[in-house]
Simulated scan of single mutants.
Amino acid sequence: MEKLKAYLELVRAHNLLATALGVIAGSMLVVKPLLVPALIAIITAVMIAAAGYAINDYFDIEIDKINKPERPIPSGRISPREALLLSYPLFFLAPLIALIVGIFTALFAAINSVLMYFYSRSLKRMGLIGNLVVAFSTAATLFYGALAQVEWIKEWKVLALIMPVVLMTFFLGLAREIVKGVEDYYGDKANNVRTLAVVWGPHKALKTALILTIVSIIMAIISFFTTPLSYLFLALTVSAGIASVISIAKAMKGKDPVSAAKVPRRVMKIAMFVGLIAIILDRSLSLALLGYKAEEA
């Protein structure tokens, strides 16, 4: 049981739930989501995410010995070799399993596997590039869930319609990563990590995050017109976006934007979770209503 607990900690089990929710939300953006492609997308996305977390801790062994000695690898509960033996098969098997749905779903899974590997190996230390990869991987869960459904039913035009929702998630995710860079400004500057906060300064970085958050709100509004999502989704996502904008603006006005950045970072994390729940809740209610009307007819 102790070994299992260590493995669950290694792969960030709580974050895997968020990955699954993202895929479920993406699947539900399709008018009539089907169970088989949804399950395959969820399973393979969770496999890639778990592999990514494991390989991340492998490459961060020396850093974690100092900053997070309680983590499974530096604490000795999981060996570096065990982390590799877990991550490599998951990276390899996920695209193969995704082939059950189709070649494009498998290809997208393979791209994400490669991206997660190189992010952990080197990209995460390259500042903005690392931020872009994280934002892409966050939005990719939505796109992946929808892609699996679309390839299964061969309704490719749906992908274009759901892109505003994907972009909403991408821009908010990128904004949050930039805010995290502001919060980590002093450590990143000392270690020559070229985040926007280090290159442009904390204030300009927060201003950029503010603009990106506003763009994500605009994408949410556009999504209302291009998808089956209703006023419930619109109200929840726009409210969460406005809360994020207000929190960033307050951090910008503070005397110490670096220490103040932790508040908008937390608010934006909640906003992203609210966005996923808004999609799932909105579509669940809509599908339940459609089923009720069908029974009446």
Rank of each mutant, 00 (worst) to 15 (best):
L167A: 11
A106W: 07
I270T: 13
W152M: 12
A109G: 12
L123S: 03
Y292T: 01
V31Q: 12
K32M: 09
T141R: 13
G26D: 15
K3T: 13
N192A: 06
V46P: 14
I178M: 05
V114H: 02
V193G: 07
L212E: 01
K262E: 14
T44M: 03
Y144A: 13
A148L: 06
K180H: 11
D184A: 03
L281H: 04
M272N: 07
L99A: 11
L29D: 09
G291N: 10
L96H: 08
L10N: 01
R77G: 05
L84K: 14
I129C: 00
T226W: 01
G291M: 00
Y58G: 07
I162H: 06
Y58F: 15
S247A: 13
L115P: 11
F108S: 15
I242K: 10
Y88S: 13
V199E: 11
T138N: 15
R283Q: 12
Y185S: 11
L107H: 10
I162Y: 05
F170W: 01
H14W: 02
M219I: 04
G254Q: 07
L86G: 09
V165Y: 00
L4T: 05
E151G: 09
L229E: 08
Y231T: 13
L93N: 04
N192I: 01
N56D: 13
A13R: 04
V215M: 00
S113E: 08
A249Q: 01
S223L: 05
I78W: 05
R81V: 14
P74K: 02
I97D: 08
F92Y: 13
V166A: 06
L290Y: 04
